[in-house]
Design a protein around this nucleic acid. Structure first.
Lengths: 249, 249
DNA sequence: ACAAAAGTGTTCTGGTTACACCCATGG
DNA sequence: CCATGGGTGTAACCAGAACACTTTTGT
């Protein structure tokens, strides 16, 4: 989309995606750097008249990451009137981030539907910047650059949702490579939750979910004792995802 | 709103509310009966340009129930293209449910933001029908009339969300009268979950949350042993609501 | 007095917590 | 050979499930 065909777009509705990845024991988020200005934005887009909302969210990500088959979940819709900011939009035109002819479209009041995605970091070769951005990079959740409008709030809401979901569902299939060690999985959990977990108890609990299959191979070329590699039993993983893990009533 | 001022409304965006109440051991939902036709709809509405999405949802309910200070929570946004149905809208005009001049507005493609509300049944004196409806009634979730478009799907999603939330948060403050017995609270839980719970275990668990205060009064004029009446400790209730109840990681 | 519902306690089990120990590997 | 991290075991504790008995009330 180098040209914006606003007439075919659904007015008032935008999509913002929080794309989580995991790399070097850090939780990362895919962000776009706007042109000519030190301001970053969540990948997202608008909704074409003939396309499902969910499909548009998938499309937006496919364009940025080159991945299809992404795990994507709607988590909240942001509808505060403070979201739209004419001064901000004028600034975007002044800084040549957006073309002046788009101003009117951008200056609408938008409701934004937030999605979060979980992707395997290494699978995203080269994130692709869009028409209003000059770079697309992974940023650490703990060290975010200045974000546009309420994008920081959206991001934090997504992160909180992810933490909560961790109690109900297994997570990892979409964030880790096919084969991984238990300590790596633990590191992922610790990173998302922002706290340390006991090694032995973690192993036992995650094993009790019965979603891991042990390949009898070990990670090589690494310091210290070589850990065993596991894979997810995808069928059981998805079953657990559906059913949920929590006890409750 | 007897006249629809479409120019001041945010296009493409609608709100649907699933209002839950509890009465005679049944989970009820507030539904509007359309004029001249045996078809029912969720209360809802559109979004004025200058008003927050959440505020509009509150407004919509205040108009129908006469209540303010309602517990209201956004749960999902519905954005399938199959949601809009020109034949359905034409039928609404034919049956004089909506004025022909509204047809164009109604026949837009809408994204609908779903909210669910928990209200105390007895506090809603007389639900007020809107401009397109001739009645507003409580219907049992287990015995629903024919619903418009995807409203049944929205309702079921809300019900599922409510079940899930029950595992994370205490529920009851908004659905029960100020004073209630433990068996009444249990009945509410059983109704929402659609299954029986053990009396003794329920009592112990709910007591362990430490959100109930025993008034030393008993329900009078009722058969059998008079149960003690409790109230919620609102401060602790809200704290538990924030923090969540589940164990997790 | 009896049926029906309220209120209380106990046992059993399984999951969570908080530990200590041995094993493998690279430096 | 030793520091570091991987892998395994275990005792104490708490929460949930299953269940039996007593108390109170209206009929």
């Amino acid at each position: 989309m180098t040209t914006l065909q606003t007439q075919s777009l659904l007015p008032s509705v935008a999509i913002d995606c929080v794309v989580f990845g995991f790399h070097e024991n850090e939780l990362k988020v895919l962000l776009l750097k706007l042109k000519n200005i030190d301001l970053w934005a969540l990948p997202g887009g608008f909704v074409n008249q003939g396309v499902d909302l969910d499909s548009e969210a998938l499309n937006a990500l496919e364009i940025r990451t080159g991945l299809d088959n992404i795990f994507l979940k709607q988590f909240h819709t942001f509808g505060s009137i403070e979201r739209n900011d004419t001064d901000h939009n004028r600034m975007l035109v002044d800084k040549k981030v957006i073309d002046p002819e788009w101003f009117e479209w951008f200056d609408q009041r938008f409701i934004s539907v937030g999605y979060y995605a979980l992707v395997e970091y290494s699978q995203v070769r080269e994130p692709i910047p869009g028409p209003i951005s000059e770079a697309c990079e992974w940023c650490s959740v703990n060290d975010l650059p200045p974000l546009m409008l309420d994008h920081r709030h959206i991001l934090e809401t997504a992160h909180m949702t992810l933490k909560t979901e961790l109690n109900n569902q297994p997570i990892g299939l979409n964030l880790l490579p096919k084969r991984f060690s238990i300590p790596e999985l633990q590191s992922l959990y610790e990173t998302i939750l922002g706290k340390k977990l006991d090694r032995r108890n973690f192993r036992r609990k995650v094993m009790s979910f019965d979603i891991l299959v042990c390949t009898n191979e070990r990670r090589t070329g690494v310091a210290h004792k070589a850990p065993l590699l596991y894979e997810f039993d995808e069928e059981k993983y998805h079953a657990a995802h559906q059913a949920g893990l929590s006890s409750g009533w």
